[in-house]
């Protein structure tokens, strides 16, 4: 039997007096590739943050790997939204990716050859080996996004969470990121948040819509262009 990685029961989150999530019940099994769609402000990012332990629920329960959120840092890879970074930060792609090893290390421990090897492998997987010594400020949006995915992969996670990985990236780059996810889904459990409904429905295995409450969708109904759920976001 497949093990349950994420288990939410009647999860509600309130932010500044506003209900952002309400009564969300959801199970993510090992090997799943779940797409979460929904409008801006629908609680998609908050849902990921709750799984990560960055946001505490106001009611209901969340278990991640059978533990409360935030207790399994070494088993989760997180790809946050790209917009929140200081692009001018003096850090090379290699050092950024190496940061993914942080969850595997103890305080005061320095990175060792094994960490370097795992980072190299993650960069190779993301097609970044040529850029490893470049400063992140010199990367294109798509390259930076792949670097953030490589950072998450360097930590050898079992569960990968991605928050809008294809927002404001040109179409060609988008497909290269989805190709990467396509390869990863064989080895990892993935939760992907996006408002790019039509594209992600081609890759994910199941899809839910978050608009404060959760709605399940039959993948085939989202698939067909004429049956698309959110014509505006196409």
């Amino acid at each position: 039997m497949k093990s349950v990685l994420v288990q939410c029961e009647q999860l509600s989150v309130t932010l500044g007096g506003m209900k952002v999530l309400e009564g969300v019940t959801l199970q993510v099994l090992e090997g799943d590739f779940l797409g979460i769609i929904g409008p801006n402000g629908g609680g998609k990012t908050t849902f990921l943050r709750t799984i990560l332990g960055l946001q505490s629920p106001s009611s209901g329960s969340v278990r991640v790997f059978g533990l409360p959120p935030g207790r399994s840092p070494g088993r989760i890879g997180y790809v946050p939204q790209r917009l929140f970074f200081d692009r001018e930060f003096p850090i090379s792609v290699r050092d950024l990716v190496m940061m993914g090893r942080l969850s595997k290390k103890k305080l005061f421990q320095h990175y060792n050859p094994l960490d370097r090897q795992k980072s190299d492998e993650a960069m190779q997987l993301a097609g970044l080996e040529r850029l490893s010594e470049h400063r992140i400020g010199s990367l294109s949006g798509g390259e930076l996004q792949r670097a953030l995915i490589a950072r998450a992969l360097a930590g050898e996670p079992e569960l990968l969470l991605l928050d809008e990985p294809t927002a404001s990236i040109d179409p060609q780059m988008k497909s290269s990121i989805y190709d990467l996810l396509e390869r990863l889904k064989k080895k990892l459990t993935i939760i992907l948040v996006s408002h790019d409904t039509s594209t992600i429905s081609r890759y994910v295995e199941s899809i839910v819509e978050l608009n404060v409450t959760l709605e399940r969708h039959d993948l085939s109904s989202v698939y067909r262009p004429e049956g698309a759920l959110f014509p505006n976001s196409l």
């Binding site: 946050p80 930060f89 950024l96 942080l102 969850s103 930590g155």
Partner: peptide, 18 residues
């Protein structure tokens, strides 16, 4: 050094990393 780097660049990621 590795913790301070993560803290300066991406505090939330550092937190998520434990």
């Amino acid at each position: 050094s590795k913790e301070f780097l993560a803290l300066s660049f991406d505090e939330e990621y550092a937190l998520v990393s434990g």
